[in-house]
Design a protein around this nucleic acid. Structure first.
Lengths: 120, 120
DNA sequence: AGTTGTATTGAAGTTCACTTTAAGGGTTAT
DNA sequence: ATAACCCTTAAAGTGAACTTCAATACAACT
């Protein structure tokens, strides 16, 4: 069980952002303590990790919201969820390939600059 | 030598965006034909490729603009440019590492869903 | 008891990176 | 020559994703 502060630090997200994600439906409503403060469970933590994964790999807030809605609708939506994850996996693979290309380009440039500086 | 349309298609950037980048100083001023239309040289093409690389790996418009200003200032700025490229290379490597982690997470999830669907 | 720190809400504001608009001129195909 | 399509500019507008604000309440420490 974690406070919003702890979760915020764990994922490097502002507490504001966590509340914003919840309000927008990217996360199911988080349980509260008696005084109304949020308590995050292990399940919440796992969902936030998946949320970060999806967000960082380019999925829009709207699309993540849709995925979360599917979770709330129950087991019937597993095939669609599987499809989303599968497509996202492909996207991430493409990103990696592209980044490898960029890495080559940057290495070339770095070598070029190093050669230039060595000459002087 | 390429027209704005050709460059736009080559890099999948709107012509508007190419003009916007130039106006904002992310690219040096592009040569014009007699009628005022832009002609892109091989050097321009290479710069646009580096621009895309920097942008896609997370550098802000402002930071790319700074890099371009260094180019225009001449050879004295090579050490600083080398530093920028070197840092960017590290950033890209971090991105790749992060994406590998996400790939694992997505694969796990996919396996979980597949197991769930196989049971039915 | 009072200060400091963290939490709550809804609404308004900000930033970034384009994108569209408006108003016009040049080019190419039929 | 007349569409259809390309280009030019400056300025205003857009959409996504937060971020800040204002007002308030509770919690922990000395």
């Amino acid at each position: 069980m974690y406070t919003i502060k702890e979760v915020s630090e764990k994922f490097n997200l502002a507490s504001h952002t966590l509340r914003y994600y919840e309000k927008e439906g990217l996360l199911p409503p988080v349980h509260r303590m008696d005084n109304g403060r949020r308590v995050y469970s292990e399940t919440d933590i796992q969902r936030i990790q998946m949320l970060c994964c999806m967000r960082d790999s380019g999925l829009s807030i709207e699309a993540i919201k849709h995925y979360n809605e599917l979770i709330l609708l129950g087991d019937d939506t597993v095939p669609e969820r599987r499809e989303i994850i599968s497509r996202q996996k492909e996207t991430v693979q493409q990103h990696i390939a592209e980044y490898q290309k960029y890495l080559d380009l940057l290495s070339q440039k770095l070598n070029y600059y190093d050669a230039f500086l060595a000459e002087k």
